[in-house]
Design a protein around this nucleic acid. Structure first.
Length: 865
RNA sequence: GCCUGGGUGGCGGAAUAGGUAGACGCAAGGGACUUAAAAUCCCUCGGUGGUCCCCCACCGUGCCGGUUCAACUCCGGCCUCAGGCACCA
């Protein structure tokens, strides 16, 4: 009698054994080849979601596979534990963020263990541990000393819901906060004193190294390149007419400088008000600047906003032509990019064209395209393409591409500017007006100014005795004992910085700390870091394509310069898994509905609340607010962790979005039951048998099954190597189907039984990285006494996969007409003779002359006639 | 507008180096077992047409064209979806 497959029981059993035997403990061993596998660590929000299950299931396949392949695997897990939700919980439920966080960690750790992931839990830490963030404070001080951390007053992004500043990277394309609040009013601008990390110093390096990361997906690299946004051009100095200095301009089209007929300044440009002072335009300029400053940022920076400006009353000179150029203040010029001033070339820039038409400014054509020449008076839009230079003095006749080079050189020689590179990337603002984060280790003294906390006084411990109301400024500012301190320099009374660091700082180096989580003498034990770093394979969601991945790359470069790590890049290979999606049902009246709140009547779907018809569900990322989540805990209870893991791996390739299907989960569960029954059925007959040695000659059914077994080993191995887990699983399914269909199950001779034993054993071994619990249990059932992970990954016998007979496809003029099975030894001539004997082939060839025969060994023959 | 990545049955997806398109699974339909249900097992399953019982022909991987004996795969042009960047000078 075969016992029922009881996932709950066997999963608990094996998780206990793995833990007791510390099977996944990583120990530095210079004699073994290391493999550092890392998945993006979770925020301890309360419970794990399907995204975690998918991410960590993918990682676990690779980890377990690499173990079996003999690598020294580091597969750690930790908690990205600082952040806003903990504070919100404090505000809403009155629970302390620390308590909330550590309790969530306990619960989620328990959940991860129930999934059976192969982590080395001895290396676990939480970023809110003092023993972690104190080193981050040390980094901050070192960066401050090197000028890489600095404070300045600036316009910053403010999220009214988070009540804090956001970095540029944390503002999404639609102007909302990266946390995705349900009713996000949009990020606004605020002027504040803020700490920044000077990531712009590394713009060029970070960009260049994008080309040296062949193990990263192209879309991520492309996003990072876009974000850094390098433009090559020139800086041009336009002297003010009154002789009082210059206006500096950045342009990528210096070849059009002879056509520049006006100048526009950003409203925030320091010269904007100065220039108008004392002129009749002063009031108009002042009003205009005030109006623009009041406008909300999203609207102001939208390309569709009407372009407008106001004349300052002042002029500058075109440095090439010495022509007067009126200076405007214009709403479309951004202080943040380039120099905050733009030269206006109406003929060759569409925006300038529209502006010039509106304000009656002159047009001069300086680039002539091939074909009909441009005439300024009849132009209806700007010509932005390449061409030959005209009205450009000594540069006349040059093509625009080489003119850019020549003019940049000329500007340089004449002291009027020169070649210049501009980046879109801006410095990383790290100050957060929040409590639950790492304190910035800075002290303000009235006498000594800004003083970093001395190294020996670290850590600056985040006080736990604090009132969190969500009102007013940072809660830390209200903790007297924390704020009031002594100046490390003059020992006089001083105040502590009360902002905390962006939580992305913690996640920018946690992967280094995993090499030496217990190290006390410093942030990183260089010897151990050098052994494990870089991460060989990093896995996580595409949503961090810019944010976390760019910050980590920046931090790694800084830490290398500080001598704490030896690598330039932290992650050699990156796999970005897709989202887990499920259909959402949205009723026009009652909003989002749970699946049980809808009713299907044939093709139509109705809302159970109001009875109205609703649209068919569209697929969207699982989210609580859209009521389309599946709780992993429910799956573990109902089907077990193995089924949950298998479904995530089988339903889609890792980098694609995964469409949730309840029936698909059933299918995975069904398959595991099928394997369970097969092994239990056969195991008693196959005890104490070993597979036949490599190269054993066989005939008939034993030969066939052995061939399938070894083909499967080859296929599954290759598929895991290239992360095609879905096809790896389908190959194992095929093998299982083959075993079911095989009559070897009824044969009693030793050879047949040994072949069957090998097939069954291989099935379990190949399944083990995907569904480890059931594999361990069945492995034991087959008479083994050690964990399956200690068994080396199977190798295929090259002789076993050789075929005696092969199927050859016969094409006539490239169209499939027949298939024949021939001995593998047959050459082209023999196959051709056989092919021509086929009735079907005869039909097409009869009476025609064979012009050509193409023969692809072991595949096909194509007869052209 | 620029930069990426996609588009294959009713669905998720296969096809690794240009060589049998649709593996594997889900759903669906039919059958077996059963008092019945569940579970399990077997069969069919891209479309159109032909005397559609095991047979055959044609069409078929977003569209148009090209290269080739042969194209889901390579080249050119387009359509479309998703993501990133964008009044960026």
């Amino acid at each position: 009698m075969i016992p029922k497959y009881n996932p709950k029981e066997i999963e608990e059993k094996w998780q206990k054994i793995w833990e007791e035997q510390k099977l996944f403990k990583a120990i530095e061993d210079p004699n073994k080849k290391k493999y550092y596998l890392l998945e993006m660590f979770p925020y301890p929000s309360g419970k794990i979601h399907m995204g975690h299950v998918r991410n960590y299931s993918i990682g676990d396949v690779i980890a377990r596979y690499k173990w079996m392949k003999g690598f020294n695997v580091l597969h750690p897990m930790a908690w990205d534990a600082f952040g806003m939700p903990a504070e919100n919980a404090a505000i809403e439920h009155g629970v302390h963020p620390a308590k909330w966080t550590y309790e969530n960690i306990e619960y989620m750790k328990h959940q991860l263990k129930r999934m059976g992931f192969s982590y080395d839990w001895d290396r676990e830490f939480a970023t809110c541990d003092v023993s972690y963030y104190k080193w981050e404070q040390l980094f901050f001080i070192k960066m401050y000393e090197k000028g890489l951390a600095y404070k300045r007053k600036s316009l910053v992004n403010w999220c009214e819901i988070c009540k804090t500043v956001l970095a540029n990277e944390q503002v999404m394309g639609d102007g909302t906060c990266w946390r995705g609040h349900p009713d996000d009013p949009g990020v606004t601008q605020k002027e504040l004193e803020q700490w920044f990390f000077k990531i712009t110093d590394y713009a060029e390096e970070l960009l260049e190294w994008c080309d040296r990361l062949p193990g990263w997906p192209e879309r991520v690299l492309s996003m990072q390149r876009n974000w850094i946004g390098k433009s090559i051009g020139a800086e041009i100095h336009f002297p003010l007419e009154n002789g009082d200095g210059v206006i500096k301009v950045f342009t990528t089209r210096q070849d059009t400088v002879f056509g520049a007929t006006f100048m526009s300044l950003a409203p925030e440009h320091p010269l904007a008000l100065d220039l108008s002072k004392g002129t009749s335009q002063e009031k108009a300029v002042r009003d205009f600047i005030e109006k623009i400053k009041r406008q909300d940022w999203m609207k102001r920076t939208s390309p569709t906003t009407e372009k407008e400006g106001v004349f300052t009353g002042a002029y500058c000179l075109n440095p090439m032509t010495r022509e007067r150029m009126p200076i405007f203040v214009a709403n479309f010029v951004l202080m943040e990019y380039g120099t905050g001033a733009v030269m206006g070339v109406p003929t060759h820039d569409q925006r300038d064209f529209e502006f010039a038409k509106k304000y009656g400014l002159p047009l001069i054509v300086v680039i002539q395209p091939e074909g009909d020449p441009l005439v300024a008076e009849t132009m209806t839009q700007a010509y932005e393409g390449e061409g030959r230079l005209v009205h450009s003095g000594p540069f006349n006749g040059m093509d625009s591409v080489s003119a850019r080079e020549a003019i940049a050189k000329y500007l340089e020689e004449k002291g009027l500017g020169g070649k210049k590179v501009s980046y879109r990337l801006r410095d990383w603002g790290i100050s957060r007006q929040r409590y639950w984060g790492a304190p910035i280790p800075i002290i303000y003294c009235d006498r000594c100014g800004t003083v970093p906390v001395p190294e020996k006084e670290l850590p600056v411990v985040l006080p736990l005795d604090v009132e969190i109301t969500g009102m007013g400024e940072s809660p830390l500012a209200k903790v007297k004992d924390f704020v009031e301190t002594r100046c490390p320099s003059c020992h006089g009374p001083a105040r502590r910085e009360t902002d905390t660091m962006d939580t992305f700082v913690e996640s920018s180096w946690y992967f280094d700390r995993f090499a030496c989580p217990d190290y006390q003498e410093g942030p990183l034990d260089r010897k151990r870091v050098d052994y494990w770093m870089p991460v060989d394979q990093y896995i996580g969601g595409i949503e961090h394509a810019i944010l976390h991945l760019l910050y980590s790359r920046f931090f790694t470069r800084v830490l290398k310069e500080l001598g704490w790590v030896g690598v330039e890049e932290p992650f050699t290979n990156l796999l970005t898994q897709g989202m887990v999606c499920k259909e959402v049902y949205e009723c026009p009246r009652d909003g989002y509905l749970f699946p049980e709140e809808i009713e299907r009547k044939g093709e139509r779907i109705h809302c159970r609340k109001c009875g109205g018809e609703i649209e068919a569900g569209r697929l969207e990322k699982m989210s609580k607010s859209k009521k389309n989540v599946v709780d992993p805990e429910y799956l573990i209870e109902k089907y077990g962790a193995d089924t949950a893991r298998m479904f995530c791996l089988f339903a889609a390739p890792p980098e694609k979005d995964l469409d949730w299907s309840d029936q698909g989960v059933e299918g995975s569960f069904r398959f595991l039951n099928r394997v369970w029954r097969l092994i239990w059925d056969q195991a008693p007959r196959l005890k104490d048998l070993t597979p036949l040695p490599f190269g054993t000659p066989l005939e008939g059914e034993p030969r066939f099954l052995r061939q399938k077994t070894h083909q499967t080993i080859k296929k599954v191995t290759e598929d895991i190597e290239r992360f095609h887990f879905n096809t790896a699983i389908s190959a194992i399914m095929e093998l299982v189907n083959e075993i079911y269909a095989s009559d070897l199950k009824d044969q009693e001779d030793e050879r047949s039984r040994r072949v069957l034993r090998e097939a069954v054993e291989t099935t379990v071994l190949l399944l083990s990285p995907f569904v480890p619990h059931i594999s361990e249990e069945l492995w034991e059932q087959l008479g083994n006494h050690e964990s399956i992970i200690k068994r080396p990954w199977p190798e295929y016998d090259p002789e076993a996969i050789l075929k005696e007979e092969i199927l050859i496809v016969i094409q006539i003029n490239g169209k499939l007409r027949d298939r024949i099975t021939v001995p593998v030894s047959f050459g082209e001539e023999e196959i051709k003779q056989w092919a021509l004997k086929s009735e079907r082939v005869k039909r097409y060839v009869e009476g025609k002359e064979i012009k050509k025969v193409i023969f692809v060994p072991k595949k096909l023959i194509n007869i052209v006639c």
